[in-house]
């Protein structure tokens, strides 16, 4: 997901422009010259200006310096550990979307499925994706949701949806 400065800069120009336009179209505050439109317009126009500067490559030299520093620190550390970057397929980069996808999964199913099963699926997938063996991932997927649920229910008094798996005998609703 590393984009060129030109792409990020121009998308910021577009975003800033849209924000300023959206602000400009807002209804004014009755009886006042200034209202809710001022701030989005100021911010949007400045953002578009910044975007144009980024696309033009202004300030690039600062980044090179910081990157050189970081590279120096992390280069040897990475050289020690066997980097898994050797077998990059086209889809490998998409792994990065697993955590947000799991959160969306939670958003859509937690009320129907209940907290424990949803959380178990999340922990299982995340753990396997990070390279855990089933021997670790499965017990973790069973225990972690139970512990989290008990903490929230007993200590913080936040009931989580029980859905299809109510467990009244261990104190969960």
């Amino acid at each position: 997901m590393q984009l060129s400065d030109r792409v990020t800069g121009l998308s910021l120009v577009a975003l800033g422009g849209l924000a300023a336009y959206g602000g400009w179209r807002l209804p004014p505050f009755p009886g006042q010259e200034m209202g809710p439109e001022v701030f989005p317009m100021v911010v949007g126009i400045s953002l578009a200006l910044c975007g144009a500067m980024i696309a033009a490559g202004v300030g690039r030299s600062y980044e090179d310096e910081a990157e050189a520093d970081l590279a120096r620190i992390s280069a040897e550390a990475e050289a020690d550990g066997s980097t898994a970057a050797s077998h990059h397929s086209k889809w490998w980069e998409l792994r990065v979307l697993i955590p947000p996808a799991l959160l969306l999964f939670y958003y859509f199913v937690v009320d129907r499925l209940g907290f424990l099963p949803t959380a178990a699926v999340i922990v299982l997938i995340a753990s396997l994706a990070l390279g855990a063996r089933a021997r670790l991932a499965i017990p973790l997927a069973i225990c972690a949701p139970l512990v989290v649920n008990l903490i929230f229910l007993k200590l913080l008094r936040v009931p989580l949806p029980s859905g299809m798996l109510p467990l009244p005998w261990i104190g969960l609703p």
Partner: peptide, 11 residues
């Protein structure tokens, strides 16, 4: 292991 900590963090 990281594969045990990170999933709990997501949760």
């Amino acid at each position: 292991p990281r594969s045990a900590i990170m999933p709990v963090i997501v949760l």
